[in-house]
Computed example of a mutant assay.
Amino acid sequence: MKLRPDQLSAHLKQLHLQQCAPVYIISGDEPLQVSECCDQIRLKARQQGFTERHVYHIDKTFDWGEVLEAANTLSLFAEKQIIELRMPGKPGDAGRKVFKEYIDHPSPDNLLLIITDRLDNATQKEKWFKALEHEGVFIPIWPIEAYKLPEWIAQRLKQDGFSATRDALSLIAERVEGNLLAASQELEKLKLLAKDQRINEETVQSAISDNARYDVFQLTDAALTGNVKLCVRILGVLKGEGIEPPVVLWALVREIRLLSYMSRLKSKGMSTDAVIEQSAKVMGFAPFILKKRRPILEKTIQRHSEKHFRDMLQMTGTIDRSIKGLDRNNPWDELLTLTLFLAGMPPVTAQI
């Protein structure tokens, strides 16, 4: 069975007379929706007696036998168990065999929750995947398109008894630029400022102008201007305020991809005006925003080689794995290294 994220709640509510599906597959690159879908499933499972939970991070060295061992072993103190697999891509031959064995010998005491990156159509047609989907529920998660974001924000507010004007919704959507985790955190701040549970444009503008705390946009600007001390300070404040690492990584990735693309265009001899127009069109930025930021963008491109930008993008992949628990590195340490690299302090392993 395939469900959209917004259909999951209704599906789970219908399970008051029956048990959760034996398998749930959450696939996508949008952290907030992935996290919230998983939370809903875990909560329903706990209500149905799945009191034990085993979490496995799949990598090339993973012993898939641990999954079957867990499936066939239940602790003396647990009624049922959730077996949670965090899998970055395809399972490989060993994983496929384990999934087949799991499906061939189902147990009502086990719930298999698979969390994976976005799966392409070819993967979804493979036998191992079709077998899992047939036995359970597949929830593919896609980024919300820009024109649908104000509606998503409005629905989010409505769930908590709040409303917002059309202008306020547009301004919030413009500020978060498609990052739902950033949008969720922004809404929590705006709710505290709202009068009579309604958010208008003035509320949003006030939150932006009067907020003395740092945000991820100030972090990227500090990095682009090469202000190392300010980068360290802002990153420390963001961590202390509980900002999630995926939000910080999103802001840095967005900036580095833009700079990398602009650098390639500049190397082809295009004028700065032409580079800005082309980059805005291809990378999804408003042209007037890039024109306003032209001085610091040019300064950063002059400070780095194209190879530097490629190295930074490779680093973002490593940080993403750390955030997902697939590596043991500290995501905040890695975010600091990346930020300082962008600010002009390459790590010792980077070649000039």
Rank of each mutant, 00 (worst) to 15 (best):
L8G: 09
G242E: 11
L235C: 07
A154P: 00
K80Q: 11
G136S: 08
K158F: 06
K292A: 07
A71I: 04
T61P: 05
P5D: 06
L3P: 12
A274P: 00
R310N: 07
V176S: 07
A194K: 10
S170L: 09
I172K: 11
L187A: 12
C37G: 09
V55P: 02
Q185I: 03
I103K: 03
V275C: 13
G317L: 15
I139Y: 05
F162L: 02
G325P: 07
E126G: 00
A45Q: 03
L68E: 09
Q302I: 13
P5T: 06
G269W: 00
P31M: 03
G317A: 14
K229P: 01
V232D: 10
E277Q: 15
I83Q: 02
L342C: 08
R53D: 01
L235V: 07
T116A: 06
K2R: 15
S279I: 05
D160I: 03
E306V: 13
E69T: 15
K100Y: 09
L219A: 05
L149F: 05
F285Q: 12
R328S: 10
L76A: 06
L192W: 02
M87I: 08
T220G: 00
S27M: 07
V176N: 06
F99E: 10
I208G: 05
E145G: 06
S170K: 15
H16W: 09
A194I: 05
D210P: 04
R321K: 15
L238A: 02
R198D: 05
F162W: 08
R328Q: 14
E36H: 04
R233H: 12
N227G: 04
P106N: 07
P22R: 04
V247A: 14
A21K: 13
A223T: 10
S206I: 01
M312P: 00
A146W: 03
E186S: 14
G28A: 08
F217P: 00
P347Q: 12
K125E: 00
F129K: 01
Y261W: 13
L335M: 08
L326D: 06
V137K: 10
E334K: 12
E52H: 09
P22E: 01
Q185F: 03
G65P: 08
K195D: 11
Y214S: 13
K266I: 05
A94Y: 11
W152K: 12
